[in-house]
Design a protein around this nucleic acid. Sequence first.
DNA 1: GCAAATTAATGATTTATTCAAG
DNA 2: CTTGAATAAATCATTAATTTGC
Lengths: 218, 218
Amino acid sequence: MKVHHFTRGFWEHEPSLSLGCKRLRPLAPKISDNTPSLSFDLKTFIRPETDDKKDPPSPQSQVVETHVPGGTRWNPTQEQIGILEMLYRGGMRTPNAQQIEQITVQLSKYGKIEGKNVFYWFQNHKARERQKQKRNSLGLPHSPRTPTTTLVSPTFSTITTLDTPKRGEGMKRNQEDSPLKKSRSWPFEYLEEQNWSSICKQEEHKTLELFPLHPEGR
Amino acid sequence: MKVHHFTRGFWEHEPSLSLGCKRLRPLAPKISDNTPSLSFDLKTFIRPETDDKKDPPSPQSQVVETHVPGGTRWNPTQEQIGILEMLYRGGMRTPNAQQIEQITVQLSKYGKIEGKNVFYWFQNHKARERQKQKRNSLGLPHSPRTPTTTLVSPTFSTITTLDTPKRGEGMKRNQEDSPLKKSRSWPFEYLEEQNWSSICKQEEHKTLELFPLHPEGR
DNA sequence: GCAAATTAATGATTTATTCAAG
DNA sequence: CTTGAATAAATCATTAATTTGC
């Protein structure tokens, strides 16, 4: 309950503003940008109460159950790993948002899990499988003891016979990853509305003095 | 005269002479006498597209097609860019999920936008600002100062004197990015539930019959 | 004055690298 | 050491300003 949303009011009158302004194409590297002012308003609304809330409405902060309070990272169960590996061997490499969601739902039957865990798992597994391959083909004619269960996909090894699977070499990208490339829609799903002040609140401590704000710096 | 300096005019009650300084692109070399700042107005006036920008905060009242239904990429408006740049200059580099959501809500007043657009914008802007910095410090030994606009981080430029500023070299990571590193929680927000079959549908040719799917297995 | 061809900017993805929990 | 998590770098893909030719 302060000021600081006056800035917002500035841009608020959207209708009349937009007309006619055709957004000049982003041009040269804005080398000669001289934006002297502007810090004022920023300060103004970066400097709200700064302490009104702790933003608990974090969807994933409810780790109170079945997990250690400090339980940070996901600890996959055997079943989860197994299923994921199966999917991987099945060819899945970069599941899209919907697929991830579905996988998550299924895997949650075996233990706590989130969508990002699935996402990261595929990312990491793919990358590490790749680098393992590379190492093997390069120097180490040694078999890395079977760690636990994770039997490496045989299909893959067959493919990458001896050519370093660098990414952008002969084949473009996602030759075999996913049928549709633009499928993955980012899963941002929000719905709340707040003020700018709260947006910038978290970084105020530094933004404040970050710009010395030397007018026309040159 | 609704010209192009909208955004700028916002933050800085600029007169009107600043044309061409912000994002004019020096596309072709054209070393001779190119009056780059002249062409714009012509187009601007000639382009009475009336809806070059998309939607007022409300749904499309009469807009034929705000954007191609075929799903094009986000085309930020002047206002959106301006706000994002302001936030960036304010110190924001890697907004977390909540911040992204809030920013998205605000920016959606000026045009269609999604959370991922905001996310990507910060990613790209940060990266390109950095590489611009690098190029400047490397390529031209002249003009030691006047780094550019938005002096991202003086510390950084100092470091990059002779050593390629690889990310994890001297300084760890995010020395100055965000106060809390583990802050960004992945914004997966799903809500539907389906079967495994549908998950693998896209890759059914192989995954479909791969897993027996036995819950309570353990 | 316009439209196709050019071209730089930049949005969107993927990959590589790194950090840190266990 | 293994690996989940996160960020940065590289790269692909699309857009729109500029050029160019008519």
